[in-house]
Computed example of a mutant assay.
Amino acid sequence: MSFQPFVLGNGLSAWVLLKSTLGTQQAAFNTNYVTQSDTQYFKGRFADLSTPDDIVSDRRLLRLVLGAYGLSDDIESRHFIKTVMSEGVSDPSALANKLSDRRYRALAQDFDFSKSPPGHKAIAGLAQRTVDNYLAQSFEIEIGKSDTDMRLALGFKRSLTEVAGTAGSNATAWFQILATPPLREVMQKALGLPTEFSKLDIDVQHERMMDKASLVFGTNEVTELAGDPMADAVTRRFLIMRQAETLNQSSSLQTALILLSSIPKLR
Rank of each mutant, 00 (worst) to 15 (best):
T172N: 14
K157W: 11
G168K: 07
D149I: 02
T83W: 02
G168T: 04
Q243R: 13
T83F: 03
T166Q: 14
F156G: 06
R158F: 09
L107A: 02
G192D: 05
Y33I: 15
I263Y: 07
N170Y: 03
A244I: 08
S20K: 07
A28F: 07
A226K: 06
S261T: 13
A47N: 12
R267D: 13
G165C: 10
K43C: 05
S90Y: 05
Q188N: 05
A96P: 02
L18A: 01
Q249Y: 12
Q254K: 03
L64S: 10
T35Y: 08
L215W: 08
I258N: 14
D54I: 04
Y33K: 15
Q4V: 14
D53Y: 12
E224Q: 08
S261L: 10
W174K: 10
A244T: 07
T83Y: 02
R184E: 09
V7Q: 01
I177Q: 05
D201A: 12
G70H: 04
V204P: 09
L253D: 13
R45L: 11
L64N: 01
S114T: 05
L126K: 02
L191H: 04
G44N: 05
P5R: 04
V163Q: 09
I240D: 04
D232G: 04
Q188A: 03
K212Y: 01
I141Q: 10
L154A: 05
L95F: 00
G218W: 01
S138Y: 12
R60H: 06
A173P: 10
S13I: 00
T130F: 02
M210H: 01
N220D: 15
N10H: 05
K82M: 11
I143Y: 03
E207L: 11
P264L: 00
R242K: 12
S90R: 06
G70V: 05
R102K: 14
S20W: 01
V131G: 06
A68S: 15
G165I: 09
F175P: 03
K121G: 03
N133D: 13
A96K: 00
T255G: 00
A153C: 12
T83L: 12
S57P: 06
A179W: 07
A108Y: 02
I141H: 11
E76I: 11
V89I: 11
G23K: 06
E140K: 15
A164I: 08
V34R: 14
R151Q: 07
V222K: 00
L64C: 03
G67K: 08
V34N: 14
L239D: 02
T180L: 12
Q4E: 13
L215T: 13
A167P: 11
D74P: 01
D211L: 12
D53E: 14
T195A: 09
E245I: 03
V65K: 01
P52S: 08
W15M: 00
H206Q: 06
L95T: 07
Q249M: 09
S262M: 14
A226Y: 11
T161K: 15
A94N: 02
L107E: 05
K212F: 04
D228V: 00
V163M: 10
